[in-house]
Simulated scan of single mutants.
Amino acid sequence: MAPEFHGPFDPVELSDPELEHDGLRHLTFHSPALRGRGDVSLFIPRGSTFPAELPLVLLLHGVYGSHWAWFLKGAAHRTAQDLIDRGEIRPMLLAAPSDGLSGDGSGYWPMPGRDAEAWIAHDVPACIREKFSSHGPTFLCGLSMGGYGALRIGFKYSDRFRGISTHSSITHAEQMHNLVRDRDLNLSAMPVYEHDILHWARKHRDQLPAVRFDCGTDDSLFNASAILHRELDNLSIPHTYETFPGGHEWSYWRQHIESTLRFFHSLLSK
Score class of each variant (00 low, 15 high):
residue 264 F to P: 02
residue 4 E to Q: 12
residue 52 A to V: 15
residue 14 L to P: 01
residue 78 R to V: 11
residue 149 G to E: 02
residue 161 F to K: 00
residue 117 E to Q: 10
residue 82 D to R: 13
residue 167 H to T: 09
residue 125 P to G: 05
residue 159 D to N: 12
residue 245 P to E: 07
residue 144 S to E: 05
residue 139 F to N: 02
residue 143 L to P: 03
residue 169 S to P: 15
residue 162 R to I: 03
residue 99 D to R: 00
residue 190 M to H: 12
residue 176 M to I: 05
residue 6 H to S: 15
residue 18 E to W: 04
residue 65 G to R: 00
residue 24 L to N: 07
residue 248 H to Q: 08
residue 186 N to M: 14
residue 36 G to M: 02
residue 182 D to H: 09
residue 237 I to T: 09
residue 150 A to C: 10
residue 4 E to K: 09
residue 136 G to D: 11
residue 11 P to F: 01
residue 263 F to P: 03
residue 169 S to T: 08
residue 159 D to W: 05
residue 99 D to W: 00
residue 135 H to Y: 09
residue 258 E to I: 12
residue 144 S to F: 10
residue 240 T to E: 15
residue 16 D to S: 09
residue 223 N to H: 11
residue 19 L to A: 13
residue 129 R to K: 09
residue 28 T to S: 14
residue 191 P to V: 07
residue 84 I to R: 04
residue 6 H to E: 13
residue 32 P to L: 04
residue 118 A to F: 03
residue 253 W to V: 05
residue 240 T to L: 15
residue 218 D to V: 02
residue 243 T to A: 11
residue 81 Q to G: 05
residue 163 G to W: 01
residue 105 G to A: 04
residue 33 A to N: 10
residue 11 P to T: 03
residue 133 S to P: 01
residue 171 T to P: 08
residue 192 V to F: 07
residue 87 G to S: 04
residue 15 S to F: 08
residue 270 K to D: 15
residue 50 F to D: 09
residue 234 N to E: 15
residue 258 E to Q: 14
residue 164 I to Y: 01
residue 42 L to E: 03
residue 108 Y to L: 10
residue 18 E to K: 11
residue 12 V to Q: 01
residue 136 G to C: 08
residue 222 F to V: 03
residue 241 Y to L: 06
residue 18 E to D: 15
residue 213 F to K: 00
residue 17 P to M: 02
residue 86 R to W: 02
residue 209 P to Q: 04
residue 268 L to K: 01
residue 17 P to H: 03
residue 117 E to Y: 06
residue 109 W to S: 03
residue 192 V to Y: 05
residue 19 L to R: 12
residue 77 H to T: 07
residue 150 A to R: 00
residue 71 F to N: 07
residue 57 V to P: 06
residue 113 G to E: 03
residue 120 I to S: 05
residue 90 R to W: 02
residue 39 D to Q: 11
residue 139 F to P: 02
residue 49 T to P: 02
residue 63 V to M: 08
residue 269 S to H: 07
residue 151 L to N: 01
residue 78 R to M: 13
residue 233 D to E: 13
residue 186 N to W: 12
residue 171 T to L: 08
residue 81 Q to C: 11
residue 1 M to L: 14
residue 261 L to S: 09
residue 243 T to R: 05
residue 77 H to V: 08
residue 59 L to K: 04
residue 236 S to T: 12
residue 131 K to M: 12
residue 52 A to C: 13
residue 265 H to S: 14
residue 32 P to G: 02
residue 189 A to G: 13
residue 14 L to C: 10
residue 88 E to P: 09
residue 108 Y to R: 01
residue 183 R to I: 13
residue 20 E to W: 01
residue 115 D to S: 07
residue 24 L to V: 07
residue 195 H to G: 06
residue 36 G to Q: 00
residue 143 L to R: 02
residue 94 L to G: 06
residue 104 D to T: 08
residue 32 P to W: 00
